[in-house]
Amino acid sequence: MGLRMTSSVLKVVAALLADPTAQRYGLQLMEATGLPSGTLYPILVRLEAAGWVRSEWEDIDPVAEGRPSRRYYRLTAEGETDARREVAAMHQQLSRGTGSTQPGLTT
C-alpha cells in the first residue's frame, strides 16, 4: 500500500468514499473533512501517487465562467477497494479498543 493511514488521511478517504463515483474539487473536500489546504493537498498527492485517486483539470474557459479551472479528484477502482479495506481495519482496531474491559474496574 505505501500509505500511512493517519486520521487526516482517513478523513479524506471517508469523504471520497461517501460517493466513490463523484468527482470532488479541493474546496469541497476541505469543507467535508475540516482540513486546511496545506494538509489536504499533500494527502491528495500521496493518494494519487499510490494509485488510489485520479485527478483531472476541468475543461472550462475561466474568463467565461468567472473563476479559475478546478482540479477534480476521484477514487480509482483500486483506490475504492483499498480505502474500504483500510477504513474497515481501522474500525476493527477501534472497536477492539473500546470493547475491552479496563483492569481494576468492577461492575
Rank of each mutant, 00 (worst) to 15 (best):
M1E: 05
R4H: 15
R4V: 12
M5H: 13
M5K: 00
S7W: 03
S7I: 02
S7M: 08
V9Q: 12
V9E: 11
L10M: 12
K11M: 00
V12L: 07
V13N: 02
V13E: 03
A14C: 09
L16A: 13
L16C: 08
L16R: 09
L16P: 07
L17D: 03
A18R: 00
A18N: 13
D19C: 10
P20D: 13
T21I: 08
T21G: 15
A22D: 07
A22S: 08
Q23M: 00
R24H: 02
R24C: 12
Y25C: 10
Y25I: 06
G26L: 08
G26Y: 13
G26V: 11
L27E: 15
Q28C: 11
Q28G: 10
Q28H: 10
Q28S: 13
L29D: 04
L29E: 05
L29S: 01
M30S: 14
A32V: 01
A32M: 07
L35R: 00
P36I: 14
G38C: 01
T39A: 04
L40H: 11
L40P: 07
L40C: 09
L40W: 05
P42W: 05
P42Q: 13
I43G: 08
I43D: 04
I43F: 07
I43K: 11
R46H: 06
R46D: 03
R46Q: 02
E48N: 03
A49Q: 11
W52A: 07
R54I: 06
S55H: 08
S55G: 12
E56L: 04
W57R: 15
D59H: 09
D59A: 00
I60M: 14
I60S: 09
D61A: 11
A64G: 03
A64P: 00
E65P: 01
E65K: 05
E65A: 11
G66P: 05
G66E: 14
R67E: 08
P68I: 03
P68D: 14
S69H: 06
S69T: 03
Y72P: 03
L75E: 06
L75N: 05
L75V: 10
T76N: 00
T76G: 06
A77V: 14
A77T: 05
E78G: 15
G79Q: 12
G79C: 02
E80V: 00
E80H: 09
D82S: 06
A83D: 05
R85K: 12
E86W: 01
V87Y: 00
V87K: 02
V87D: 14
A88W: 04
A89V: 09
A89P: 01
M90E: 15
Q92S: 09
Q92G: 09
Q93G: 00
Q93R: 15
L94Y: 01
S95V: 04
R96L: 07
R96A: 10
R96S: 04
G97M: 02
G97T: 02
T98H: 15
T98N: 10
T98Q: 14
T98L: 13
G99H: 05
G99E: 05
S100P: 08
S100M: 09
S100H: 13
T101N: 06
T101W: 10
P103R: 04
P103G: 12
T106N: 10
T106P: 02
T106H: 08
T106A: 05
T107I: 11
T107P: 07
T107Q: 14
T107F: 01
